[in-house]
Amino acid sequence: MTGQIGNAPRDFAADPLLDVAELSKRFPLARRGWLGGRAPAMVHAVDDVSFTLGRGETLGLVGESGCGKSTLVRLIARLTDPTSGSIRFNARELAALPARDFARDADRARIQIVFQDAGESINPRFTAADAIADPLRKLRGLRGAALQAKVAEAATLCGLPLELLDRFPHQLSGGQRARVGIARAIAPRPDLLVLDEPTAALDVSVQVTILQLLVTLRETLGISYVFVSHDLNVVRLLCDRVVVMYLGRIVEVGPARAVFDNPLHPYTRGLIAAVPRLDGLRAGGLRLAGDPKSPIDPDPHACRFHGRCPVGTDRCGTEMPALRRFPGSRQAACHFATEPA
């Protein structure tokens, strides 16, 4: 009986692998006017985000497109620099280290990322073996027979037959490409693996095998995952805890099962209600109409969900709700969230 591990309650808080605090990333829009005119308008992509990730834990990151998931992932993986805040990884502060320098840092191999569509993210002129060997060569300095042995080992761990290693991405099936993407990420033996929608392009049948592979790798290698997905059913299957984001801010955090069964934040409720289910449409399902507000210079005193929220009042337009703690290691940023029954 494997695979259920993911949902068993464990205490990860004692020894976090990753501790993100008050992390923000703003992107300037084109400067208005000449020579230091007004300050440029800012897109608040990630705004004051704090969370921890325990060793061996899998954290789900969900939210609509444009909510800042990808920016947050790029910050954690240290591919871009934060505007402010701290990222502590293995008790080392990484936020101050420019992304350019981190590319050659010893910890680069410890944080790896699996991109959405391996068909798009793998160099089309690299064979599967080249793709897996590349990070080993650059980050671990391996060459020759040692390199080949590590490539074969990573491929085997990911269930990729060795005879496929000479093939180019276009000669592989979607599931095989996904395995190459995972193999190249785990080859340098990271502590933290960021998975950005790893199964979005796959059929359900192939998706099952990839999810099972991820569970096996988590157990054999002891890696922690940050799992980004828009498919809440998949997040529920794989994740210990889940972080729900809305317009750059965290609106809810908690154990995956508790959040899905009994969401505290009205946005989480709307998101879960919108997920199609095999047992058919629920009558009177909550609908989140409209689109999120603009992320450009949002009102710092208003809840980002105000205006789209089914329960909000005038208070939400003048007072930004803070992330409050609730029993069962849960947090929610809503004035009207009440203790779970």
Partner: peptide
């Protein structure tokens, strides 16, 4: 039946899913 057995549901776990 296989297709249904591979589709994630709100209730089941990963161990309940079967690839085709």
């Amino acid at each position: 039946r296989r297709l249904l057995a591979a589709t994630p549901t709100a209730a089941g776990g990963l161990a309940d899913l079967r690839a085709i």
